[in-house]
Nucleic acid binder design. Structure first.
Lengths: 218, 218
DNA sequence: ACCGCGCATTGATCAACGTCAATAATGAGC
DNA sequence: GCTCATTATTGACGTTGATCAATGCGCGGT
């Protein structure tokens, strides 16, 4: 949350958070087409966001964890443009968007912070475009795991040992691969000694080499 | 530009636009790493945005035309995160970001409009992710052409006859394909009678069928 | 108007990934 | 603790798009 606020301002930002909401594993936080009213800040848990095209194609557009903001895609049209679904039992803070708008008009630090969050989401999406447009299957997997690793680390968890919350199919959808290719890729990274896979449990042995595996074949 | 403003507000939004800037074909509007100060609204011309990864990979992340806003990616870090380059001689309005921030704190219509623009950019990026993640080469090409067609139409130009401003290689980079694949795809769409290609000139004969060509094989 | 280089097209071959299929392992629910 | 459905692994094979290569064309610059 933004720093550099007066105590009074902090109080007002606190009261901005309307309610909390629990979302059980597998349940939607919101669905595409629903009216957009609020943003959601994840307190605990893990989500995926997924877009469904007219012809029925599904694409996972991201995995979100504690501290991240969801729902930004709904501002433009007033309707949510993707489904957000909990991958484990989760809890979110509900942030009514019109109150956020009002308050950010009064507290410029809040305004600036909000703009930064939106901009970073754009940059994140662009790096996924790069991944999908230019990387080979094993490189995508390595990039995906390194990204997860860094995000766990920044939350105080281990960067080298964690449990995946999503299935191979969901990983594949996110990375533009089929689930079999994801499975083979993980097996291959394991064979190369970079990590151990046991179902959803990942132990990274050589994080440096995994980072190198994001780049074209050595 | 936003509607529903008083005359006084319109004046103030007008004075927000600091200067204009001309960018010759091939020249950068900004480069990755440069300090972010302003957003740019395209008055005339055509741009591409491109990200370059650490290991040297390049990915075109979008093509922008008159009326569209560029530079949103720089807000989060204070530095531009991609290159923006003119594909033809162009002119932009320079919008100093700190003045936009101030003014949007006073004019809520402006604030809301700005938030919508950012949100739509996120949604646009997600639909590119869908394209890159799930579509086959010819489907991507069809989707690309249909998108261009609609954007020309909404600007008062022909939806069925236009000139591409970018090379096959740039199209390929955007679509996650090699330039040869782009060329073959265009030839194939031509053979199927959906359109005519003559270098950069495109004439769409069957827009409906082209839209259908975005979906999996019939 | 001309020249030259960048851009586009097309063909042949190849590798990566998808598809289809069979089996195994896991864990959620009773 | 057991069972079944879901998820994951692995193999064999097919297809798509990448790669390599050669040729032709057009347009920008002088």
């Amino acid at each position: 949350m933004p720093v550099g606020l007066t105590e009074q301002e902090i109080e007002r930002v606190d009261e901005l958070v309307g309610t909390r909401r629990k979302v059980a594993r597998g349940m939607p936080l919101y669905l595409s087409g629903e009216s957009f009213q609020s943003l959601f800040a994840i307190r605990t848990g893990f989500f995926k966001t997924e877009v469904v095209s007219e012809d029925g194609r599904e694409q996972v557009t991201g995995f979100q964890m504690a501290g991240e903001l969801m729902g930004l895609d709904g501002i433009g049209t007033g309707q949510h443009n993707c489904d957000a679904r909990a991958l484990e039992d989760s809890e979110v803070c509900v942030i009514p968007f019109n109150r956020l708008s009002e308050l950010s008009r009064e507290i410029d630090t809040l305004q600036h912070h909000f703009h930064k969050v939106m901009s970073r989401e754009i940059v994140r999406d662009q790096s996924v475009m790069m991944l999908l447009g230019t990387m080979r299957a094993e490189e995508r997997l390595a990039a995906f795991l390194v990204n997860l690793s860094q995000r766990f680390l920044s939350r105080g968890y281990s960067a080298t040992e964690f449990n995946l919350r999503m299935t191979r199919e969901e990983i594949g959808s996110y990375l533009g691969l089929k689930l079999e290719t994801v499975s083979r890729g993980l097996s291959r990274l394991q064979d190369e000694g970079l990590l151990s896979v046991s179902n959803k449990n990942i132990r990274i042995h050589k994080l440096d080499d995994l980072k190198k595996a994001m780049s074209p074949r050595c």
